[in-house]
Design a protein around this nucleic acid. Sequence first.
DNA 1: CTTTGTGAAATTTTTCACAGCG
DNA 2: CGCTGTGAAAAATTTCACAAAG
Lengths: 226, 226
Amino acid sequence: MGSASNGRKIPEPTLARLHRYQVVLRKLCRAHETTVSSERLGDEAGTDAALVRKDFSYFGCVGQRGVGYEVEGLLAALQGTLGPSEPRPLVIIGAGPLGTALAGYAGFEMLGYELVGIFDSNPARVGHHLRGIRVRHTNELPAAVVGTGVQLAILAVPAARAQEAADQCGQAGLRGLLSFAPVHVKAPPGVKVRQMDVSGELEILNYQLKCGMTAGPLPFGTNSTG
Amino acid sequence: MGSASNGRKIPEPTLARLHRYQVVLRKLCRAHETTVSSERLGDEAGTDAALVRKDFSYFGCVGQRGVGYEVEGLLAALQGTLGPSEPRPLVIIGAGPLGTALAGYAGFEMLGYELVGIFDSNPARVGHHLRGIRVRHTNELPAAVVGTGVQLAILAVPAARAQEAADQCGQAGLRGLLSFAPVHVKAPPGVKVRQMDVSGELEILNYQLKCGMTAGPLPFGTNSTG
DNA sequence: CTTTGTGAAATTTTTCACAGCG
DNA sequence: CGCTGTGAAAAATTTCACAAAG
């Protein structure tokens, strides 16, 4: 058991699941459940019991053998790994429909984020208020970064502006970008970019529907040399 | 070349990239470029030349050695693999801010999708028009599925309603769901579900910022027994 | 000479299986 | 017993390296 909690390299797929466990655990917490087994957790989070345990092994084990995991303890451990207890500032770039919808998303607070700014390069949008926050011009971003220490931004701008906006974010000192633009954005130096590709996901879904997921045994057979 | 174009099992990561190549190719097409190398394509799509070639090998090779890929031919091949040439119907479930923003997303048409319906279980929202489409009550969904042959839906409902809505979609006869809810949705029988987890992505970004991508050695030291 | 197509190696991630603790 | 923690096996994916084609 020695290797747990070394806290070194958590695989990305694990990170993606860690957040889902958190969501499930919060629900269990509200339902006043005290313990949960890896099987139940896997079931509710859409993964597998073994994978749940493996995932937890990356950041320290909090389970009791024969019983399961203590819901609160596990939640605390997860929050310690994923996010700090203090709210993390966050800005949204782009005050179009998507930026507006995201600004209205109440879930950020629950997750420990605090929306501290909304920026748009279109002067016509500057000055409007979304969720009590005044939309500022993009050229005010650097000052806001310095002022709030914000590191993360959601990029909700049209494809044509995405790279430009990402570069501005990088220059302003932001460190992480979550882009909704349906184009690949090259990461500015020192910036980590993740893409949220709606249309790409639709295409995958569509393809998988087209072939391969008709209920029943998979009709694989065409096994050429490969 | 023998094994290519069997068209059977394309890995999911490849599918995700295929769409990005499509985006780049369309751009090149507009710029009247006739050929493109795997290196260039990889660069613009955010992957690697070797991976580009490997990806294409799954669905047939269209490249000319020494030259590259014919932009139009490749685009046609991709569109043939990913989506059909006729528009695919699509519905949005949930007419809240996110559903509204998505309804306004002009990119769907470009990708060959046609938004044929918006549904909401809240009677207060029924009757409004988004992008020229009347919001209908969720209980009209089954009829719409039969009428349009739609298979895909985007789920833009609150977490608390997500599972319920997914089940309704399944019963209505939909086959693929793209969910924006920040909870895991169990796939109803015969339905393929993909999740678009905004907060999860933010958490990953935040974690990767916290540790691992500061240039230089990681400042971990706490190496407990576990 | 350039660039593709592709086996084979390397790497990453998941699944398995079971020892060990409560 | 039941359930966790974890090495080892398996599977999936990416990277490498190079032969073959234009």
